[in-house]
């Protein structure tokens, strides 16, 4: 029986009395690679934040690996890349290594000291994101793309089973973007990492994700790409051109 990495049941969230998410129910099966798309303000980032406990829904429930979110504590299993890291204080004095190592805190108990195993894990994550050579540079001095890769390395440092990425490629140049997607695909196929990623890039999502979740405050579509591309209902919803845009490179 497949294990659910994330289960959402009747999830609703409102901001200042306005519903941002309404009655979201779906399961993300362990090993899935799910792309979440939708128009601006459709609740994509809010959904990620609810899953992570950063926003509190007013109704519904969330379970992570079978554990209710309210009592979930095993954060080693989850890696997260938030949106908007470009706002980072440019004079923040932490090195790339120090930032990536912070990801290991989730595996620590008080007083949360780092050891050689943590250094080895950091080395591996830096290598994976091809940033071993900048480990001692200050994060504030890096370009947007290198910062993004640093935070990704931080998300990957525990070899998480679930990766939640909120618009992960916005600051990346085309080459780095390709290599980033290749890394994600490798993690998904060879390590079984569940990937849940929000993107505006509907045109390329079909290249990588195996499942599509189209959100517009409620779930418009959730299923395999094949189903989406063949669905007459979706054609009427998006129009032939819109559906083609999402499907044509898949």
């Amino acid at each position: 029986m497949p294990v659910n990495a994330v289960s959402l049941c009747g999830l609703s969230f409102a901001y200042h009395g306005n519903d941002v998410l309404k009655d979201i129910t779906c399961n993300i099966v362990a090993g899935d690679y799910v792309g979440i798309v939708g128009p601006n303000g459709s609740g994509k980032s809010t959904l990620m934040r609810c899953i992570l406990g950063l926003n509190r829904p007013y109704a519904g429930s969330i379970t992570l690996f079978g554990v209710p979110r309210e009592s979930y504590t095993d954060w080693r299993r989850i890696g997260y890349l938030p949106q908007g890291l470009q706002m980072l204080n440019p004079s923040f004095p932490a090195t790339v290594r120090e930032v990536v190592r912070l990801g290991r805190l989730s595996a620590k108990r008080f007083p949360k000291r780092f050891d050689k195993d943590d250094d080895t894990a950091v080395d591996k994550a830096l290598e994976l994101m091809a940033i071993s050579d900048i480990g001692n540079r200050l994060i504030g001095e890096l370009s947007g793309g290198l910062r993004q890769r640093t935070i990704l390395a931080r998300a990957l440092v525990n070899e998480p089973e679930l990766l939640i990425l909120d618009e992960p490629t916005t600051a990346l140049d085309p080459d780095t973007r390709e290599s980033f997607y290749a890394t994600l695909q490798d993690l998904n196929r060879n390590r079984g990492t569940t990937v849940l990623f929000v993107t505006h890039d509907s045109a390329t999502i079909g290249l990588y994700a195996s499942r599509l979740l189209y959100l517009d405050k409620k779930i418009v579509f959730y299923g395999d790409f094949g189903q989406f591309c063949e669905s007459a209902e979706m054609t009427s919803f998006f129009g032939r051109q819109g559906q083609h845009l999402i499907c044509h490179r898949h």
Binding site: L52, L54, P82, L88, A94, L102, G103, L105, S106, I151
Partner: peptide, 11 residues
């Protein structure tokens, strides 16, 4: 460094 990243690391 970042409150939200810290929260998702169990801090």
């Amino acid at each position: 460094f970042d409150e939200e990243l810290a929260a998702t690391s169990g801090t």
